[in-house]
């Protein structure tokens, strides 16, 4: 029976599937803001659940849903203790496989440091060189965004099987401000009619092949003095 079940599961893994990622960053005039991150795997439930049902894949242990949940919660609890970070919230819909995360921050650098420290803590990362990079910078007028180096290192380990997961997926990056955007460097980024938000949508597969797709530089109009 187990062998039949294993056979069924393993065939499922060959099938195509997709992932949807949304990062939503709001920056107020005073530099504080809110960061929201959403991962939606609901359209790949069969594939993801079939992977989660296995003990290991390619010789590596597959975490159970409970272990993944505990890891996310551990990340959130570390982030809560970081200076300048507040209102950390995590919701996990394990039926639809949607994870939502959000937090408020006092400045872009506190957000970046908080995320770095929490990642180091939960992943037991010893080599923190990749994490020294600033993937977010904001000087009050220009927001620069790059892809974090550690995520490139991690995605280099993505096997062919996992790349299938990215093929029909997409990554959406939204940046919101209190005042109008003057210019966006990235071709393809959309600006809303009030010019207070811009959205960049790329395929996760293309992003895996070319990390600079998500790099962007957003120029804001000067703050009006009252």
């Amino acid at each position: 029976m187990n062998k039949v079940f294993l056979f069924c599961l393993s065939l499922i893994l060959l099938l195509s599937s997709c992932i949807e990622l949304i990062d939503d960053l709001t920056i107020h005039n005073d530099g504080s803001g809110t960061f929201k991150y959403t991962m939606n795997l609901s359209s790949s439930k069969i594939k993801v659940n079939s992977i989660l049902a296995l003990d290991s894949i390619n010789g590596k242990k597959v975490l159970s849903k409970a272990e993944i949940k505990s890891k996310i919660n551990l990340f959130a609890s570390h982030l809560k203790t970081q200076a300048g970070i507040s209102n950390v919230s995590v919701s996990i819909n394990d039926l639809e496989l949607i994870v939502k995360f959000s937090c408020d921050f006092t400045s872009v650098s506190t957000l970046q440091n908080g995320l770095k420290n929490s990642l180091i803590a939960i992943n037991n990362i010893k080599n923190t060189e990749d994490l020294n990079q600033n993937w977010l910078s904001y000087d009050g007028e220009v927001l620069k965004r790059n892809i974090p180096l550690f995520s490139i290192t991690l995605s280099d380990h993505v096997k062919e099987l996992d790349i299938d997961l990215l093929k029909t997926g997409n990554y959406t990056s939204i940046n919101r401000f209190d005042r109008p955007i003057v210019k966006v460097e990235k071709v393809g980024a959309k600006i809303n009619p009030s010019r207070t938000a811009c959205m960049l949508k790329v395929s996760t597969y293309d992003l895996h092949k070319n990390y600079s797709l998500i790099d962007n530089c957003i120029y804001l109009s000067p703050i009006k003095n009252k």
């Binding site: 099938l15 599937s17 949807e20 939606n40 609901s42 790949s44 919101r176 809303n192 938000a197």
Partner: peptide
């Protein structure tokens, strides 16, 4: 499946349940 539908004016998004087809 759950899809995120975007408002083109605000870029806000909300969940919407839709039909999906998966290979099995």
């Amino acid at each position: 499946k759950i899809e995120f539908i975007y408002d083109e004016i605000t870029f806000e998004y909300e969940e919407q349940e839709t039909e999906a087809v998966e290979d099995m």
